[in-house]
């Protein structure tokens, strides 16, 4: 036997239900506070990728935005522009000449900016190197930076604590 249609339901008028957003607001407020806490005005200085993993360090010094020399497992980059592949580095020479030329060009540019627009030239360079880069390569890059105008090196690391 079929059920008789409900009489109560037939006469019920639909009342408009308000969506209760209060609990969602609570969650949002907490997320907002958390994000504000981790907010940084400097922004991302470096972009990590598969072949560029930074080493960990206990240092607490804050990095500033400067010219970056990146040493990935395959390439050498100056401010995210590829200069050369690591295979092309001459094993016997202490100086890496394509990198040296690039850095000298940028130093000359920076000095010109210093004269024209009074943008200070700090001689600082951020060395962003992969954690598995061998020492002989690191040494050559450091030596090349030192031979060009950029003699204040800053090795970028991830803070451990």
């Amino acid at each position: 036997m079929a059920f008789a249609p409900s009489r109560a339901k037939k006469h019920r008028t639909s009342t408009s239900e308000e969506l209760n957003l209060t609990s969602m607001m609570d969650a949002m407020t907490i997320i907002l506070l958390f994000l504000l806490k981790t907010y940084s005005t400097s922004g991302a200085i470096i972009s990590q990728s598969k072949d560029l993993k930074l080493p960990y360090s206990l240092s607490t010094q804050q990095p500033h935005k400067e010219l970056t020399v990146s040493l990935t497992q395959e390439n050498i980059l100056v401010s995210d522009e590829r200069v050369m592949a690591i295979d092309q580095v001459n094993r016997d020479d202490a100086i890496i000449s394509p990198l040296f030329q690039e850095l000298s060009r940028r130093a000359a540019e920076a000095k010109q900016n210093h004269i024209q627009y009074a943008i200070p030239f700090t001689n600082e360079v951020l060395v962003v190197a992969d954690e598995s880069v061998p020492f002989h390569l690191l040494y050559k890059v450091i030596y090349t930076c030192g031979s060009s105008e950029y003699n204040k090196l800053r090795l970028v690391t991830i803070r451990e604590r």
Partner: peptide
């Protein structure tokens, strides 16, 4: 804020070489 959040805290090690010139 998510876009500009810094999840990895970076730090630096200073290494001052004598000026080349």
């Amino acid at each position: 804020l998510l876009y500009s959040a810094e999840f990895v805290k970076l730090s630096i090690r200073e290494l001052n070489l004598p000026p080349a010139s």
